[in-house]
Amino acid sequence: MAKVVINGEEKTVNATSITELLTEESVKMPDMVSVQCNDKMLNRADFDVTLIQDGDVIEFLYFMGGGH
């Protein structure tokens, strides 16, 4: 379990990787989402291997729909 901030909201999550976090958070259209961790843009290829740590500030960012 890790305590993180996701899109501004504090949460305790079971996921250990970004890929797992996308599933745990039921992120819609995960292919269409960019992920930032502690202000750093993550490569999609690294979603599986990027481990979630206590205190991480994670942003899921959408460009589809209205955003950006």
Binding site: N7, G8, K28, M32, Y62, M64, G66, G67, H68
Partner: peptide, 17 residues
């Protein structure tokens, strides 16, 4: 605000989506 900033998927005005 969340949709505008891409933190949540959604639509607000059909010119942008």
């Amino acid at each position: 605000e969340a949709i505008f900033n891409g933190r949540q998927p959604g639509f607000y005005y059909s010119r942008t989506g």
